[in-house]
Amino acid sequence: MGQDLDAIVELLEDFVTELRRANKSAGTIDCYSRDVGYFVAFLEARTPPIEPNSDALTRDNIGAYIIDTLNRANRRTGKPITPEYANRQYRSLQQFCKYLVTEEILEDNPFDKMTPPYVPEKPIPVPPIEDLRKLLAACEGTDFEARRDTAIIRLLVDIGPRVGEIAALDVDALDFQENTALVIGKGRQPRVLPFGDKTRIALRRYLRIRARHPKAANNNPALWLGKRGQMTSWGIYQILERRANAAGIPHLHPHQLRHFFAHNWLASGGQEQDLMMLAGWRSRQMLGRYARATAETRARDAHRKARLGDKL
């Protein structure tokens, strides 16, 4: 235990190095780093302040931090912190402590016999296809933003990627011989996802106008360009918000389009195992979560198609 007074910020640097060695994604590393940093800020803001070293990684301090997180308001919206956010803080600190136990910096894991914050099941609404048609209609035009936004929305609906996966696409990720996009998912796992003819047309139209964009100079590989260069996930969120407002439909989250893809795959008779591969899911738990919101609709449609009573 000779290192029990090591500062958490220094231990975090070692943890990040280990995450990079394990080839974890940049998003995962940033998330863990931010969340551990929030815990350090919590310790320093206590009265009296708690020295943020490894001795502070106790069950009591972590529990107090989670309670404080659940009682705080979101700085941007002013609304209460969601259980999902508090659960993420718990998981990030849990991974950090697991690493410290492995390195024998902590003798005991403070998370042993701890319970994560309960996250109520909240089915994500699947947007009706009529709303998506209105959304695409709001993108009509031949200017750069119209071509780009149409291509983004069609790709989100057609192949069902995570928003981070589509934001990170390079031009070379598109294969127009096979009509596929190569995305890099969680765990740095690649997936080749096929898209349809309308998405192909939208992508080709966008690439032609993209070639004249100022940020496309010097062989910029980023597929989606904005005023400052490569678009981020947040930029795609903003596109959907702006276009939904213009279409006069409820605000759409990119994840709803992923749910739309999953629902329609299953409703069209697609195999669950194939959907897991296309969506980048490793467990059937995720399949169940995505399918649950519209399971009743699919069950009713299947019953009408089967016409069991009419066969008597």
Rank of each mutant, 00 (worst) to 15 (best):
I249S: 03
I249T: 09
I249P: 10
I249G: 07
I249A: 02
P250N: 02
P250A: 02
H251N: 09
H251W: 00
H251D: 02
H251F: 03
H251P: 04
H251E: 09
H251V: 13
H251Y: 00
L252A: 06
L252W: 07
L252D: 09
H253K: 07
H253L: 13
P254S: 02
P254M: 04
P254W: 03
H255M: 02
H255C: 09
H255T: 06
H255R: 06
H255W: 08
Q256G: 04
Q256Y: 03
Q256K: 06
L257E: 11
L257Y: 01
R258T: 13
R258S: 05
R258N: 03
R258Q: 04
H259E: 10
H259L: 14
F260I: 11
F261H: 10
F261W: 11
A262R: 01
A262M: 05
A262I: 08
A262C: 11
A262D: 06
H263D: 14
N264S: 01
N264M: 03
W265K: 08
W265A: 11
W265V: 07
W265D: 05
L266F: 06
L266K: 03
L266A: 02
L266C: 01
L266I: 15
A267T: 14
A267L: 10
G269E: 01
G269K: 00
G269M: 07
G270W: 13
Q271I: 00
Q271D: 15
Q271P: 00
Q271F: 05
E272T: 08
E272F: 00
E272L: 06
Q273P: 00
Q273M: 13
Q273C: 03
Q273E: 13
Q273N: 04
D274R: 12
L275Y: 13
L275D: 02
L275W: 14
L275C: 10
M276K: 05
M276Q: 00
M277A: 12
M277S: 05
M277P: 09
L278Y: 14
L278T: 12
L278W: 15
L278C: 04
A279Y: 02
A279Q: 08
A279H: 00
A279K: 05
A279W: 03
G280V: 07
G280N: 11
G280S: 09
W281E: 09
W281Q: 10
R282D: 02
R282E: 07
R282T: 14
R282G: 13
R282M: 05
S283R: 09
R284P: 00
R284Q: 10
R284L: 12
Q285Y: 08
Q285W: 05
Q285L: 08
M286G: 02
M286F: 10
M286T: 09
M286P: 00
L287Y: 07
G288Y: 10
G288A: 05
R289W: 04
R289P: 00
R289F: 11
Y290G: 03
Y290N: 07
Y290W: 10
Y290K: 04
Y290H: 13
